[in-house]
């Protein structure tokens, strides 16, 4: 077991609540039209994100995917610039250029989320290669979904990381669905973890609703990576409460693809409620203490919204910024 301090456990709760409340508020803003574009929430998946991120150090690298808000929040990014990014503001973490699917906060090791399924895996593999060549003990963790485990870059990255024994953790956020299609219909193996066998690396099924289990498994993978033994594939079972994406004014475009009973059953294992119970039973916090963390997070998210709303949109005169480092004016 990895020993976690009281502060670390409270921080886990705080970050899970940040993800939950941030995404709840973002969904409301999106429905009202304040946030343009689609939105993919991590509600229900908070434990796997936070358990993994808290097994990393600030200087460790992370890449992710379209369901992107949770990852930088889990790794400790401040909420204001993230919310401002969703609103398309100049103070956004990506200056309003990337939006919901492309959050990145290099200051905390977040090398970027991606709107292309599977695309973050080779990049994390490269960040791990860089750490190895530079002789640091940094690791790289890449979040991807069950659907991404069918892409070429998944298999190419696992093989490359395995032959070079790179310090990468491949963390599959297996929520059972790619958009509205069941993983069991699309993935040839029973467990995505089984795919590790093909690359002679460890593959492990993890309870993604238990933040401590995810933290434990990720910490083992980090240790293995830092020892020079190479990558690990974690098949982390989780569940998203909401549909694939919020489409706002486009309406609910998803047909019924799962039963109410299935969603209700999943909600009975709510990662935040389960962890709050563990904290209370372990006398880390009492109920008031949990409520107080929740209240703090609510006001943090409110402040983030205020910050985002008060910020300006990028000036159109900056539309050509950020193409190159060594300036070349785009033709127009």
């Amino acid at each position: 077991m990895v020993e976690l301090s009281r502060e670390a456990k409270i921080e886990m709760l705080r970050r899970m609540l940040r993800i939950r409340i941030f995404d709840e508020v973002a969904s409301e803003l999106q429905a009202k039209g304040e946030i343009p574009g689609p939105l993919h929430t991590s509600i229900g998946q908070e434990a796997e994100v936070v358990g993994a991120c808290m097994a990393l150090s600030r200087q460790d690298y992370m890449t992710g995917n379209h369901r992107s808000h949770g990852h930088p929040i889990g790794k400790g990014a401040p909420l204001g610039p993230l919310m401002a990014e969703l609103l398309g503001k100049e103070t956004g973490v990506c200056k309003g250029r990337g939006g919901s699917m492309h959050l990145a906060d290099f200051a905390i090791g977040s090398l970027g989320e991606s709107g292309i399924v599977g695309a973050g895996m080779p990049i994390a593999t490269g960040a791990a290669l860089s750490a190895k060549l530079r002789g640091t003990d940094q690791v790289a963790l890449t979040f991807f979904g069950d659907g991404a485990s069918n892409t070429g870059p998944f298999h190419e990255s696992l093989n490359l990381a395995a032959i070079w024994k790179l310090p990468v953790i491949f963390l599959c956020e297996n929520n059972g669905y790619a958009v509205v299609t069941r993983a069991s219909d699309m993935v040839a193996v029973e467990n995505i973890a089984d795919r590790a066998t093909a690359y002679a690396i460890p593959g492990e099924v993890v309870d993604g609703q238990n933040v401590l289990s995810v933290h434990e498994a990720t910490s083992r993978a980090v240790k293995r990576a830092q020892s020079g033994a190479g990558p690990t594939l974690l098949d982390v079972r989780t569940y998203r409460y909401r549909d694939h994406a919020e489409f706002g004014k486009m309406g609910d475009s998803v047909a019924s693809y799962r039963s109410k009973e299935e969603v209700e059953a999943a909600r009975k294992r709510d990662p935040i409620e389960m962890f709050a119970k563990i904290l209370i039973e372990g006398e880390v916090l009492d109920e008031d203490g949990v409520a107080s963390v929740r209240a703090q997070v609510i006001s943090e998210v409110d402040e983030a919204v205020d910050f985002a709303r008060a910020s300006a949109f990028p000036d159109v005169s900056t539309a050509f910024d950020f193409l190159f480092v060594d300036a070349v004016a785009p033709r127009h």
Binding site: C94, G96, R97, G98, H102, A104, F106, L111, F324, V325
Partner: peptide
């Protein structure tokens, strides 16, 4: 570089 607002 563009998507991440110049961070990369």
């Amino acid at each position: 570089r563009f998507l991440f607002g110049g961070q990369a």
